[in-house]
Design a protein around this nucleic acid. Structure first.
Length: 198
DNA sequence: CGGCTGATGATCT
DNA sequence: GATCATCAGCCGG
């Protein structure tokens, strides 16, 4: 499989556009055991001045990397159990990001199955917590540059994204009506309730 | 399949 | 001490 690395310059500065742009792109996790990769099929944008965004309360030790450079990773722990992978958007100091919610497994499927304790390929990375478990996303990966060579990076393959659907974001209560979730229509690898995936 | 709920711990006040 | 950008497991239809 031929994967070419995304450059920072080609990532849209507008974070909503970035969330849309990342659909159909590939997230790659290089481990000593081998490569895990998946095609991104679902994202959510978290914007500046957005009460649902972690950056809304200002910079803290936890969300510091969210205020970093576009294309870097922001990883945090959700509900004490799950890690969430975000791609930092915008410009340094702003605090916007794109949550990677689901991916279609491409490479390293056996590694993912082992990490997840599950064989069903459609469920390996369908949801942000599942994706992080399958891709072995750790807090130590937070702040790394995903447009540079390293253990976690972004790429493209010769397969365009399908039609992109838009819905409200999942699992939030503040600013819950904003259409900032993007997904590939018809993909079996997208999370969320059926009504959100039309 | 859809709806509900407990688990679980880092983080901030 | 309250709040979570979630998930697995369980239950009813």
């Amino acid at each position: 499989m031929r994967i070419t690395r995304l450059t920072r310059a080609e990532l849209p500065v507008d974070t909503t556009e970035l969330a849309r742009f990342l659909i159909g792109k590939v997230v790659i996790r290089d481990l000593p055991e081998g490569r895990i990769s998946g095609r991104i099929v679902e994202t959510e944008a978290y914007l500046h001045g957005d009460a649902a965004a972690h950056s809304f309360i200002g910079e803290t030790p936890r969300n510091r990397s969210l205020f970093g450079e576009r294309g870097h990773a922001y990883v945090y722990v959700s509900y004490g159990i799950h890690r969430m992978l975000n791609v930092v958007g915008g410009s340094p100091g702003v605090g916007t990001g794109v949550l990677i919610r689901a991916a279609e497994p491409l490479e390293g499927i056996e590694l993912m199955q082992a990490r997840r304790g599950l064989s069903d390929v459609t469920d390996l990375a369908r949801g942000p917590g599942k994706l992080a478990q399958a891709f072995e996303i750790t807090l130590g990966l937070s702040d790394i540059d995903m447009t540079a060579e390293g253990p976690l990076w972004l790429g493209r393959i010769d397969r365009p994204a399908g039609e992109i659907g838009v819905s409200v974001r999942i699992g939030i209560t503040k600013e819950a009506d904003r259409p900032l979730r993007f997904y590939e229509r018809g993909s079996k690898f997208v999370s969320g309730r059926k009504v959100l995936n039309i």
